[in-house]
Structure formats: structure tokens, C-alpha cells
Design a protein around this nucleic acid. Structure first.
Lengths: 196, 196
DNA sequence: TTCATTATATTAACACTGTTAATAAATATA
DNA sequence: TATATTTATTAACAGTGTTAATATAATGAA
């Protein structure tokens, strides 16, 4: 019962890495316990020696993607001017991360009825991630009297709704059809929300 | 091979009605061919004598729900003053229809990776439905010079994005937690978009 | 009415899904 | 080396959509 910690972590990672590859590539529709295990080089039942169920495994991926997304956004926004311009950059980078990995958007915002990711706290963490990324800049804006506390709250709400709407329609429903059109719509929406 | 038309339509409706009941009640997660057939009083394989596959059946439901949604919106907005106020009423009614039947929202805007509803034209019809409902009022606004053609296009786009974002987060992710909070957010968003 | 043909409904089966229990294999301990 | 423990695998269950083969019901002609 007292399993070697290092070995256990290593084993877990084999499965997590396999699952991440599938999610990034084919997306949620292609993931299955047998699929993950095969890619990890083990039998499907072995997975259950390291995870309670597939939800637990998938949520480990969610946490990793979350970190990756944070880094992607950081890299894509650090050179922007602080305040409103950086909020715009952060949001654009956030959107582009999910455009690059539609399967991860599915996992973060769409999936619910199927059997992955259902812990309440997990959901709060996911839906709050744009908020968390923008928070330093929102505080900066309030401190410099560019925004009131109330208008900052309102703005981050509007941003999240528009981002989720834009991405849901583009990723899930192919509307608009091209990336160029999509990004033009993104620009319009963000300008309207951020620059009033 | 030359089946009685009336009987065929009747049979189709038995399955469609059964599927609609399930979708309205438990939602997409609970639907299955065996489930539908049992509720219709037939064997699961009989369904395939009347539909090519379950996607075809589900899309018949989509069309029905579409009509029902139109009527619901019509009833909830016909007494509003024409122009911008009615656009707001239409959008609110549209939102409330999906709040009442979250499973239908799933079917209309979320589902894609799973195996229901995938014909391209069908998707266009669904995502264009708010646009279609608002169109007479948008034209009215342009004619009365309340809006320019360009600002009308922009408005309907923003409306759709916000509506889908609001509903996705509320239905799929329980954010915000209460209906009251949700409707307050709806009001804020719609006011911001429609009344500038 | 009886028989043959056609149309419709049903059961059995296939390939998948997540998960669990029983078994096989590998490792560690004495 | 022999025993005990840990880890991995196969077999199985209940579920999914779908298809082929079979059973039942309805219809036609004699």
C-alpha cells in the first residue's frame, strides 16, 4: 500500500501526458480510458490504480492547461502598456489560446453534461480564470482612476460573456467561417467593452 | 416499399414526441435510441425504419423547438413598443426560453462534438435564429433612423455573443448561482448593447 | 378463405464506452 | 529460495449507436 511516491507520480504523468496529447489533438470526442491507456503503454484497468476515475485524470489535465494558458497570456501581453491596453492584450491572448486548442475550450466551458470535470470548485476556478488574469490591471485602473470599482466589475463580466459567446459560436458552430472574420469581431467587441 | 404516407408520418411523430419529452425533461445526457424507442412503445431497431440515424430524429426535434421558441418569443414581446424596446423584449424572451429548457440550449449551441445535429445548414439556421427574430425591428430602427445599417449589424452580433456567453455560463457552469443574479446581469448587458 | 408475397417490427450481434472483480505477473521481504 | 505484497492484466457488466437476420403482421391473388 505504501507505494513509492516517485514511481506513483511518474505513472500518473504517463497517463496525464497521454490524455493531454489526445485533448490537444483530437479533443474531448476522441478521449476514452482505453485510448489514454494505450497511448501511455498500459492496460485500461491500470489507470484505475492511479486515478479514482477518468474525471480525476481529466481534471489533472485541466490544471496543467490552466497553467499553460496563464503562461501563454503572460507572454502575449507583457509588452502592452499597463491598464486598459493590457486588459485588451490579455483577453486577445486568452482567446487565441483557445482558438489554438479548441478541445481545451470545450473542456473548460462547454463540457458539463458528459462525464468529465464536474467538481463545483473546479468550475469556479475555470470560469474565474480571465478574471484572475485581468485582476492586476483592473486594480491598476481603479488606482489610477481610469475606472471605478463598479465599472471595473462590470467590464470584466462583459468581457467574459463576450469571450465565451464569441468562442462558443466560432469553435462549436463555425460562425463566422474564417479566422480573419472572427478576429475582426473580437476586435469590435473588445473595443466596445474596454474603450467604451 | 410504398408505405402509407399518413402512417409513416404518424410513426415518425411517436418517436419525435418521445425524444422531445426526454430533451425537455432530462436533456441531451439522458437521450438514447433505446430510451426514445421505449418511450414511443417500440423496439430500438424500429426507429431505424423511419430515420436514417438518431441525428435525423434529433434534428426534427430541433425544428419543432425552433418553432416553439419563435412562438414563445412572439408572445413575450408583441406588447412591447416597436424598435429598440421590442428588441430588448425579444432577446429577454429568447433567453428565458432557454433558461426554461436548458436541454434545448445545449442542443442548439453547445452540442457539436457528440453525434447529434451536425449538418452545416442546420447550424446556420440555429445560430441565425435570434437574428431572424430581431430582423423586423432592426429594419424598423434603420427606417426610422434610430440606427444605421452598420450599427444595426453590429448590435445584433453583440447581442448574440452576449446571449450565448450569458447562457453558456449560467446553464453549463452555474455562474451566477441564482436566477435573480443572472437576470440582473442580462439586464445590464442588454442595456449596454441596446441603449448604448 | 387460404396461400404467397410484401411490409413492418423484433431480437441478436458488433464495436464501442466507463468501471469493477478476479486473476496473473512482478517485486520486495524474510 | 520461499513467502508476502504490490502492481498489471484479462474478463465481465451495463450502457451506447447501428446493422443483419429473423419473426410477425398486413396485403394481394386464387
Amino acid at each position: 500500500m505504501v507505494r513509492n511516491e516517485i514511481q506513483e507520480i511518474r505513472m500518473k504523468e504517463y497517463f496525464i501526458d497521454a490524455a493531454r496529447e489526445i485533448l490537444k489533438g483530437e479533443g474531448l470526442k476522441s478521449i476514452s480510458v482505453r485510448n489514454i491507456a494505450e497511448r501511455a503503454g498500459y492496460s485500461y484497468a491500470t489507470l484505475y490504480n492511479y486515478f479514482n476515475d477518468v474525471k480525476d485524470l481529466i481534471f489533472e489535465c485541466v490544471k496543467d492547461f490552466q497553467k499553460e494558458c496563464d503562461q501563454f497570456v503572460e507572454a502575449g501581453s507583457k509588452n502592452s502598456r499597463r491598464g486598459l491596453p493590457r486588459i485588451k492584450s490579455i483577453t486577445k491572448a486568452y482567446i487565441n489560446y483557445f482558438v489554438q486548442y479548441p478541445g481545451i475550450f470545450e473542456l473548460f466551458f462547454i463540457e458539463s453534461t458528459n462525464d468529465f470535470v464536474n467538481k463545483k470548485t473546479d468550475l469556479q476556478v475555470i470560469t474565474g480564470s480571465l478574471n484572475r488574469l485581468c485582476e492586476p490591471e483592473l486594480i491598476y485602473c481603479v488606482e489610477n482612476e481610469v475606472l471605478t470599482k463598479h465599472s471595473a466589475d462590470k467590464m470584466i463580466n462583459q468581457l467574459l460573456y463576450s469571450v465565451v459567446g464569441l468562442l462558443t459560436l466560432y469553435i462549436n458552430r463555425r460562425q463566422p467561417k474564417t479566422y480573419k472574420e472572427f478576429m475582426a469581431n473580437v476586435e469590435t467587441e473588445l473595443t466596445n467593452i474596454i474603450n467604451k
